[in-house]
Design a protein around this nucleic acid. Structure first.
Lengths: 204, 204
DNA sequence: GTCTATAGTAAGATAGAC
DNA sequence: GTCTATCTTACTATAGAC
């Protein structure tokens, strides 16, 4: 990203402020209307900015949406990776335990950031977004498959598919839960379901 | 649909021909460019028709896309329901066996109609399409959940969700397979994976 | 009832002044 | 970097021929 390696006070620059207010407005407008039915005019209106400025900073409506998604993804990955690292640091070595810890962090994040989670799961996106989301999701859990030591044979690949599905579907249920208790219950059930898949067919 | 109950030779009427050629053209154009990037001008161009005609018969770009989807869904459901009925008629009563028979029919259909399957799985659709697809998919497997006698507790619901996903993901893999042999292998592995879920947590 | 030609409208994208 | 004015595209609606 272009943000890395900048000066220490970059976060207070004019550009950063504009980007932030634009992203915040986008979060609201896209959340209310979805991608296609949201208008850039509405977004820049709420951000107190202008169309030209949006195009200057992001390049277009699609890229603005993508930036919001990247931010959301980064938060998820950070939470999951951080949790796994912490648990590892406590001495836990069992791959399945580590995987479940990461999954729990992901699901809890789905509840905390449920407004964005709903937007990206159930609503429409720009052309090609569905494909990109699927690719990313597959990549993420493929990494976990390596962590778990699953083989690359059809059986192993399908197992990974199932784990992807359980986490993804559970995330959906969590994000659409009405209360925190309900979300917690779904998380519990999902993690139990995942544990049921142990032992995984391992590579030789 | 408006088609039901019409005269016997309706299928040869001018209207039916126009609709067919329009749907065929839509199948090609949407398949090549996806929904958003396809233009209605391109569709009617290939169909040898006109924009106004399209709006007369379907109501718009969105409805044309939906009509294509409905057709695809109907074909899938017909195949699955027909197979289940046939197997039942042969005396099979085990719910899981019936479910697997239906799943096999679905997956084989995913290979036969892979052009449409790819379009609806990986590409973008009109606003609200993602939600509609998810609703339909959930409904379909919920029926199967009843067939399977799964409970309505979180565990049972999640199991159903996962079965939905496994079939869906497998369908994706099948539709993107390069050869028929590859598709067959995926189907085999998926059905074995589904069978592994037996016994399902049953309602009391 | 079916289709063509054409005008209207909305919204994303761009250019260039400041 | 920011903003206004303008351009372009493509969906939508309609009048009228056949």
């Amino acid at each position: 990203m272009a943000r890395t390696g900048k000066g220490a006070s970059w976060e207070w620059s004019r550009t950063a402020q504009t980007r932030r207010s634009m992203l915040q407005a986008a979060r609201e407008v896209f959340g209310e209307h979805g991608f296609a039915e949201a208008s850039v005019a509405d977004v820049v209106g709420r951000a107190g900015s202008s169309v030209g400025s949006l195009y200057h900073h992001f390049g277009g409506k699609t890229e603005l949406f993508m930036a919001l998604w990247e931010e959301h993804q980064a938060a998820h990955e950070e939470a999951a990776a951080g949790t796994v690292a912490a648990v590892k640091h406590e001495g836990v070595r069992d791959p399945m335990a580590l995987f479940i810890a990461g999954a729990r962090a992901f699901l809890e994040g789905s509840w905390e950031r449920r407004d964005l989670a709903r937007l990206f799961m159930d609503r429409d996106g720009p052309p090609g977004f569905e494909l990109m989301r699927r690719t990313r999701s597959r990549e993420w859990v493929r990494q976990n498959a390596i962590l778990l030591g699953a083989g690359d044979d059809p059986g192993g690949r399908l197992t990974v598919m199932v784990l992807t599905s359980v986490i993804g579907e559970a995330g959906r249920e969590v994000a659409t839960s009405e209360t925190e208790d309900e979300a917690r219950e779904v998380i519990k059930a999902a993690l139990e379901l995942i544990a049921r898949f142990d032992p995984i067919p391992h590579a030789t």
